[in-house]
Design a protein around this nucleic acid. Structure first.
Lengths: 182, 182
DNA sequence: AAATTACGTCAGTAGTGTTGACATAATTCC
DNA sequence: GGAATTATGTCAACACTACTGACGTAATTT
């Protein structure tokens, strides 16, 4: 006698290369990123900061003078999401705002000495992890890793990431309705 | 006359290779992962599912028969976090639980046909993105990418990821106080 | 002068993660 | 066989990050 609610039959075949889908690399990316973020995440707990603070701090350090609008496009988050973490970083003296010289409506974001120090501290274990993971690879193979990662990124960012920090400035992303205000 | 609250001086130097830190790759990983997850995230909105559902669904499909405890160790989340999304996946008929044959306390997790189909659908754009990013690389360079990603992962997972799905079964992680119950 | 832009902020909501406590059933230990 | 342990589920409370929509202000552009 079957149960009143028929249980859909469980599938017991592991998902592997069958459908020409690259499960191995999908999984590797998940695990790599999971552990890549684990060290800074742990440190940030000390400051009552989260991963969002780290990202803001990173880009403000990497591209000092970035405006709020530019930062929103880099992070692909909304104004409201940024507001909270940015306010905390300013209140704690990690970031300062400077009125834009050309357009005084703009707020250029700069790290303070404190903010720069924290950014470097957070980048340290990540950089070590990367160096260890690259260890044993030939120069050309390192280039291949960079090529792969860069080509995982959608345009218009693909052609700008992994170059000089200034390449991240002033990317006018085509309007696509993701803004907090219109 | 200085203002009453002295503004910490802004640092205007971009953060680049100065401190021997690999900011380029740190950034590439951020952008690559951001866009890697964007396609499935968008699809999942249709189902009122989030990224957490995707991860559970992926591993249940990849390693059918995985127990709840094993899944918690793979995802490195707590029991409570898993409970919510797992319940939803079961209620919507994507995943079924089967009482463990050896240990009847255990619940083995299996995808249904519906769950397998969704997993494949979500993996499709990710796999295409990976294939496109690998395009133009020599076989050895692809191996280098895998080497890099695998070595970004901490042990005991490093030696298990990117191999056969079964390698993810039964990893007894050393106790480190991250459990929901003791 | 009017429209637009850059930014800030208020209110409400959702998804994902956390901790701690407690309950149940099954297994293992002595 | 009784006790401790294990695997799982669940309740309550909370934190962080993200979202949407609306509104306000100052500065720029038209």
């Amino acid at each position: 006698m079957p149960k009143s609610a028929a249980v859909p039959s469980p599938i017991r075949e592991p998902l592997d290369g069958e459908a020409h889908l690259d499960f191995a690399l999908i999984e590797l990316l998940f695990f790599a990123y999971r552990d890549f973020t684990s060290d800074p995440d742990q440190m940030l707990d000390t400051y009552t900061f989260g991963r969002a603070h780290h990202r803001v701090l990173h880009f403000v350090n990497r591209v000092p003078g970035l405006t709020v609008a530019e930062l929103l496009e880099v992070l692909k988050i909304t104004k409201q999401s940024l507001a909270r973490v940015l306010k905390q970083l300013i209140d704690t003296g990690h970031v300062v705002q400077v009125q834009g010289p050309r357009d005084r409506r703009q707020r250029e974001l700069y790290p303070t000495h404190k903010g720069r120090t924290l950014a470097l501290t957070l980048a340290q274990p990540q950089s070590e992890r990367i160096a260890a993971a690259l260890d044993g690879l030939a120069p050309g193979e390192r280039k291949a890793v960079e090529h792969f990662l860069r080509n995982m990124v959608d345009e218009p960012w693909r052609s700008r990431v992994g170059l000089s920090p200034d390449a991240l400035r002033g990317v006018a992303v085509a309007e696509d309705g993701q803004h907090g205000s219109e």
